[in-house]
Simulated scan of single mutants.
Amino acid sequence: MSSEHMQIGEVAARTGLSLRTIRHYEETGLVTPSARSQGGFRLYTETDVARLMVVRRMKPLGFTLDQMRDLLDATDRLDADGKLPAAEREALLERIRGYERDAAEQVEKLRVQLARAEDFAATLRARLSPAPGSTP
């Protein structure tokens, strides 16, 4: 096994994903190990890890597996061949722009939720702290 390949345990440690989740993403076709060892162990490359990180970042924003697959397909096609016809290249970039807009919208929604959660926690803290002049 060369040093550029990692087994699933190392990939899990680097990505913060469970072995089960990584296997699930393989089963759904999102990320396929680049190779297998002679013993049949999955072997991953830095590119595979980068793909898993894209998926990991998309999941909390509510993107579906199909959307993740679509974005990865678009980026793969852009990265694979610099000689794409201009119209196809622009269409792929527009797909990616759509995901960027959706991600930005989800981030803003999460900011609102976080602000509400922080306000709620502050309200509870204030309720639990003793009033000035009172004895605990």
Rank of each mutant, 00 (worst) to 15 (best):
G29W: 02
S37Y: 03
A13T: 12
S129Y: 00
R57Y: 03
L110K: 09
D73S: 13
Q106P: 01
G98H: 01
A121L: 13
L124P: 00
A13Y: 00
T32L: 13
I96Q: 08
R77G: 04
E10D: 15
G133N: 11
K59P: 02
R89Y: 03
R14P: 06
G39Q: 08
S129D: 15
T28S: 09
G40L: 04
V54N: 04
D119C: 03
S18Q: 02
T45M: 03
D48L: 01
E4A: 11
F41M: 07
T64F: 02
T45L: 10
Q67R: 10
L71W: 04
P60I: 05
L78T: 05
P130V: 13
A12R: 01
D102Q: 15
D102M: 14
T28E: 12
L92F: 12
D66G: 06
A13K: 14
T123F: 12
L78G: 08
D119R: 07
G133S: 11
I8A: 03
A121G: 02
L19N: 10
L17H: 02
T32S: 09
H5Y: 15
T75S: 13
Q106R: 15
M1S: 14
Y44V: 11
R57K: 10
A121V: 14
G98F: 02
T75Y: 02
V55S: 05
D73T: 14
R36M: 07
V112I: 09
K83N: 13
M1P: 11
S2W: 00
R20I: 04
R57T: 04
P132E: 07
G40I: 05
D81V: 07
D70T: 13
G98D: 09
A50V: 01
F120E: 10
P130E: 13
L71V: 08
T15G: 07
S37W: 07
T75R: 12
R42I: 07
T135I: 12
E100A: 05
E100S: 02
G40K: 03
D70P: 00
R23I: 05
P130K: 06
T21Y: 00
P85M: 10
L19H: 05
T123W: 06
T64K: 04
Q67L: 05
A74Q: 06
F63N: 02
L65Q: 04
L110A: 11
M68A: 14
A87P: 00
A122H: 06
S129N: 11
L30R: 01
F120S: 06
E118A: 09
A117L: 13
T15H: 06
E10C: 01
R69T: 00
T32V: 15
A115H: 09
L65M: 12
E88L: 12
P85E: 14
L128V: 02
S129C: 06
A74D: 10
R116D: 09
L93M: 11
V107D: 05
A103P: 06
Q106M: 14
Q7T: 13
R111Q: 11
Q67K: 09
S3L: 14
E105P: 01
L71E: 03
R89D: 11
L52G: 03
R36K: 13
L30V: 03
S34M: 08
R42F: 03
L17Q: 08
A121Y: 01
S37P: 06
R56M: 03
L78A: 08
E108K: 02
A35K: 08
Q113E: 10
L124Q: 05
L114V: 10
G39Y: 02
E88I: 07
A13L: 11
M53Q: 14
L128Q: 12
D66I: 05
A117P: 00
L43R: 05
R56E: 08
E108P: 01
P60C: 05
L71C: 04
